[in-house]
Structures are given as C-alpha cells and as structure tokens.
Amino acid sequence: MVDGWTCPLPLRDYAKVTIGHGGGGQLTDELIRHLFLPAFGDAAVDATPTDSAVVAMAGHRLAFTTDSYVVRPLFFPGGNIGELAVNGTVNDLAMAGAQPLALSTAFVLEEGLELDVLGRVATAMGEAAVRAGARLVTGDTKVVDAGQADGMYITTAGIGLVPADVDVRPERAAPGDTIILSGPVGLHGTAVLSVREGLEFGTELRSDCAPLNGLVQSMLATDGDIHLLRDLTRGGLAAALCEIAETAGFGIRFDESDVAVPPEVRAACGFLGLDPIHVANEGKLVAILPADDADTVLEAMHAHELGADAVVIGAVTDEHPGVVVARTALGAHRIVDRPLGEQLPRIC
C-alpha cells in the first residue's frame, strides 16, 4: 500500500476491480491511462501502452513484452493455456517486427491441480516455442490455496530482436494506407465459449491459436514497406482497429463483406448475441502499408499457411479521426466501437 496515493483521475464507475477491467476494452484502457501510468510516475515516462516495447540496447533494438494468461477451461478445442501463453507472447514480439529469442514462464498453480494436466500444458508450451523458433530460458513456480487460481495462471515475458531495416510501429500508419487482414475471424473466442461452463455448445471449430512470427518474417522479407502490424486478440478485429485509429489519430474504414466470418462463428454469435468482429482471435493479424505495396505483401502472405486467406479489407483515412467505420453488406455505413469489457451473451 502506498501512503497517500490517490488516483489522479478517479475511475468513475467502479471502486473495485471488475472482470471488465481485464477484458482488453475501454475499461482496461482506462485502468492503464488513469491508474497505472500516473501511479508509476517518472518510471513510466518512456512507457507506451502497447503490447510490446522496443528498447535500444548496445546498437540493437530489442522488443520486450509480457502477458498473463487466464483461460477457463484450461483446454479448449484447438489449444490450451500453455500454447496460448507462448504464442501470445511470440505474437506480441512479432507485431513489433521482432524475431522472438527468449521467453520466461511463470506459473501460479492451484493446490490440487493434476500433475498430468500441468505436464500436458508444459509439453504444449515447449512445442509451441520450438515451432516459433524461441527458447524458454527462465521461469518461476508458485502454488496458491485450492479454489484460488482456476487450475493455473501463466505469465510469459519475451524478448526479440528487431532487424536493423525494420520499422513497424503505430505512428507510421498514414492516410491512404491499405489494411490487410490475414484470415477469417472469431475462431478462438468461439472455440473457448463452446466449452465455457453454462454455455456449452457443439462445434467442430478449433481455436486459431498460432505463432505469427513466421508469417511476419515472410511479409517483412518482401519489398513492401509495412507500417504497422497488430495481432487480433481480445475484443477481436473491432478492438484492434479502434486502438489503431485512436493511437494513430486517423480514421479507418473497412468493408464488412471482405471480412471472412466462418459460418459456425456466425451461427454461434447469432444465438449468443455477439458481433463476430468483437470475438477473440489468437492467430490473426492486420497489416497497414502503402496501397502500392499491398499486392507484393499479399502474395507473400498467401504463400504462408497462416496467411493463405489474407485480403485487403479497408484503408486508413484522414476523415473521421479516431473513428472506425464499416461499410455494411447492404452498402450503408456503421460506426464500429470496441467492446467495453468482457464479451457477454445477450439473450433478451
């Protein structure tokens, strides 16, 4: 407890942390801007509220990131918490244009967790790291009382090297730039919801959880001047585009008909009352680049298994700064907002 600490800009709605504060939406954003950054004070002068930071060190640029993983249940169609923890951190590094080098793994385990479960999760982490070409170099293990950690929580941190000729960051997005989406959306969130207690539904869908650094490398290897990369995670395509628009200070428009939504995702979203572009992904990215470079980069993406369905969905514009506008299938327009917090089924 810090003596005399007061929130400089009181969080208006809640006196306590709510689930929504961890949803990656507006509430999370408020927590960062109005609590963490002011509280950290001078220590956070260089901090950017982005998923990974690039720090210059001994003539090199290192990307650095950390993430905690909490998912219920631990295993879901197409993946588990361990795979998620490695791929998520690998992807955050990749979005800075970095090749991941080393990852740390810290476990908070619930008393009573089956060692067999832990073993399967750990194995998946090793395999995911190998697939991404990264090493798991250090870690930590803590155990908490039964009933406290949903089985386990995992925190990973990672460092990666940004090649000298790569400059990928939000500030480079500019009006006229084209936006590419790497594939169909909503798979991860739908797969996890299908096994969420109380919501269970049957589906063949699997999470798209995957390391994107290989795809990014093949994109960076082209002549295309990629301005910005962003993986789609919580809050889905909508949250990613809104965050880009807000950070870059430009508007974004995209065509809904160009965003592929698998029929099963659409069906599940239908009865849960969710918008597919708000649903989480773990293996998709958007790239923002000059329109003239789109074809070259698309060609490279199509040659990679994780970018086979990549398409241009829209563009950056100097109209409506900070706002994302979608062209609907009927040819009208709608404003796209990021979700407030966690995705909840809407029934009535």
């Binding site: 299908s194 539904f201 049957g202 589906t203 063949e204 869908l205 029929p263 099963e264 659409r266 069906a267 599940a268 239908g270 009865f271």
Partner: peptide
C-alpha cells in the same frame, strides 16, 4: 433436443 444452428449445436 439438439438443435443445429448451421455447424453449431445446442441443447
């Protein structure tokens, strides 16, 4: 009963 919502089933 089980209802198929187009690839997604629910009781």
């Amino acid at each position: 009963a089980t209802v198929d919502f187009g690839g997604v089933t629910k009781t």
